[in-house]
Design a protein around this nucleic acid. Structure first.
Lengths: 118, 118
DNA sequence: CGGCATCCCCCGGGATACTG
DNA sequence: CAGTATCCCGGGGGATGCCG
């Protein structure tokens, strides 16, 4: 198959969009040690609205990156976990966060220098 | 410094946003072999509007990831190149694209399966 | 050639309230 | 508890037109 991310209509662009989505990255990273419930994800990921959490989880499920397991109990319980495909993303997500935490200082310095220019 | 990407107001979130931006990834990758002119970038990156190209380049420059060099000639010539900080991103960008090109098939299959479910 | 500036539209996404 | 439904707003981002 022809996969050129520079091409406008290449589906790999959509993959970039998904991975690029900040919520996706945070969700995948949160699930690295095992499954979590909906509420646990919501607490863990500071600032995500229920709408975006659900929406992103549905997208990840559709893309075969997470599984959604409903337990028939009261109160309801829904677990989310990574698939094999999802686990293959962990290295990337970790690298992303590592870079961010390692170079955030440089970036902030560069911004300050840029903004204080005539 | 406290760097927790799960925290709402952590600046590393902004780094995630920048790297997550599809245009940023494509620009950084395009510059891996050396500097390019504005028009060359526009041609290389299919589907980007002038506005977004300029805007993204400004953001990358502000964040210390690319340099912008204006040559005083007619017609004008502006070269963009990666900084050291920008070059440190190359591994990440390549990994991102590699993953996309490697797993795009799995993702598309998962989507089809998901969409054709009752 | 390499941009800003402006207009304008559309929808991403937050807040809130309600259900199985 | 785990969502859906609804409303609503800001701004992302395309198109177009003008400068140095």
């Amino acid at each position: 198959m022809e996969t050129d991310v520079y091409a406008k209509n290449c589906p790999s662009r959509q993959v970039l969009d998904r991975i690029g989505d900040a919520w996706s990255v945070l969700i995948v990273s949160s699930l690295k040690d095992g499954s979590l419930r909906y509420t646990e994800l919501a607490q863990r990921i500071n600032g995500v609205s229920p709408k975006m959490l659900t929406q992103t989880l549905r997208g990840l499920e559709r893309d075969g990156i997470v599984t959604r397991t409903v337990h028939a109990v009261v109160p309801p319980r829904v677990d989310y976990a990574l698939t094999t495909l999802g686990r293959s993303l962990l290295g990337l997500c970790n690298a992303l966060q590592d870079w961010a935490e390692l170079h955030i200082g440089d970036v902030l310095d560069a911004r300050e220098a840029y903004d204080s220019r005539p």
